[in-house]
Design a protein around this nucleic acid. Sequence first.
DNA 1: GGTGCATCAAACCA
DNA 2: CTGGTTTGATGCAC
Length: 699
Amino acid sequence: METTSQDESESDEQDQPLEAKPLRSLAPMLPLPMKYDVATQSTDPMLVFVTPFRPCTSPEPSAARQPLPKSPAPLRATPVSAAFPMPRPGAGGDPLEATPVSAAAPAFRMPRREDESSEEEYNPFFCGRKKPTRLKTAGKRTHQQAECSNARDMKRRPTQTSLSLNKELATFTPSSSSDPTESVQETLTMFDSLRRRILQLDENREDAAGKRADLKAGSLMMQNGLRINNLKTVGPVPGVEVGDIFFFRMEMCVVGLHAPAMAGIDYVSARRGGSGTDEVVAVSVVSSGGYENDDTDSDVLVYTGQGGSSRRRKDKHDQRLERGNLALMNSMERRSVVRVVRGAQDPFCRSSKIYVYDGLYRVEGSWTERARDGFSVFKYKLRREPGQRDGISVWKMAERWRADPVTRSHVVSADMSSSAEKLPVCLVNDADDDDEQRVPGRFNYVTGVEYEYPRPLGKTKPCKCPSVCLPSDDPDCSCARLNSGHLPYTACGLLVKRVPVLYECGPECRCSGNCRNRVAQKGVRLRFEVFWTGDACGWGVRSWDPIRAGAFVCEYAGQAVDVSTGGEEDEYAFCASGEGWRWWNLGAGLVEEASDGDAAENLEERLPVMISARRSGNVARFLNHSCSPNLLWQPVRYGDGGYPHVMFFAMRHVPPMAQLTYDYGTTRGAAPPGFQGKFPNACRLKPCFCGSTSCRGSF
DNA sequence: GGTGCATCAAACCA
DNA sequence: CTGGTTTGATGCAC
């Protein structure tokens, strides 16, 4: 298809969006551009009521984006519709052309709920035990749409959730993007921030009803029709790319990659060509190791059928050729493709699993065999379709490097931090063979910022929590109070939501080093590599480890420069004007206490310093810009003169080896009083190569 | 149309 | 720390 050549040329080398030049942001740091104070703008839930398809609350089309209407040149924005070279073009008379019923819709059907196109039908204030008032406007709906699970979703009994959550939900709009990749990102973000928020809220209630926040979040989204790609389709799911990772089954559910909450095989009933009888066809399988599937070859998967394995020994039985098992068998006969998701071990959490979408496979063969418990099971041999970008193989490669860094090739320097970081920072160049010895310009590797305290900021009150801070133990924890009464991280150290300034416990707090409110101060836990992206964007950063949304990534290290004395142009200065993170809060904490005194106060704390990573810095100085970034920056204070550290957190799940980026922001007009004119380049926009469909064209 | 059941995930506890 | 136990949401099947 028309666009494939472009696609390939890009995906071949570095997959993810190539980013623009190394650091180039020049405005000094300030906590938050006041005009866009999220806290005030989006806090009142009553004012945020929005009908679907009107992205008012959605940050994208905000004024901030407008000033850059036409970007003259180097926009390499790829139409994302091209991202899915539909697999079946030639595919040798794929019998599947006799499409499954519900897949009959064009494969590129937009996820958005067209079925909700009448506004009154969408009831964001659906709450509590009351059933949503669902109007029967079925006349408007096509047969297929009526068939989609939405109707049933809406009817389903809501799990008991706190009222405030329902209010928060009211602020959700179904993704308004026409770009499938964006809708998927938005939906996943919504899910995860909702999940973290439920964790945070449930934790304050001692009735211990707070279990399975993942299921609750998923359920809420289903009930409110916030799931996308409702129609099960054989083949790719728009917006989900091979290699994408998921941390919960529910995540795959809400983006339509794999609908069953638990079952490993998802299938759809399809009309058999001609004969008019229905039969089932598999659409996706999740191989998570529960059945001891053979995992050695990354292009071949031997998958065990479902059923038979009851918990109670006496209920065990042979597997039967029904449901998913039958569906896989039919898929084999029709030679239709099946999406495969492979489970992998989460390197940071032994008990949990990560799901890696590995693209399309075909069932090559099937047989039965006797399992260890003596009952017979179905086995299916699936082979990966050629020509797809790497999925699980990248994962496995990175896994190998993590276990044994020596196996990484094209290494220029095994640890460019010279042991300054706890984990080595690898410098590699596998992009150009001509110049393998290319190295970044000289700089000192440091892991933090040395402030000279020209003007110490006000001290914060240390907390007196005995061992670790827990909101339920001590509602008076002064650190929690600084953070609007909540601990800013989940129990496993994920940022719950972006705040103007985050307060971690400091050296004078009584709590121990294990306190949950000490995350970023503990430093990097990821194995980074700095790699050459090509001439356009220079060096970039990626990680061998998967990164979960909300996870701490790294600090922006460097030298504090007093701008009142300094003021020369500096390409490695950190600029705080980027707003790429704003949408991340869409799902989280929108009903925060409206007039948050802290937030207002923090805006006063503009610093007379900025951070320059020109002479000294860490990996962060190699982070590239993207208009749809995967990192956000978050000022974090703890002890130590009170200067906020600039900390990066992941805004979405980032698979291993995907480039890490943040939004440099547009510096034009953002330089606060006193800085204007000091940095001539600040107002000269650089062309952006991020390739995102929402690319602003420059930064 | 309601309801049961099959699925086996994730979190917790012993 | 592991392995068993518990509690589940969903969507097909009846």
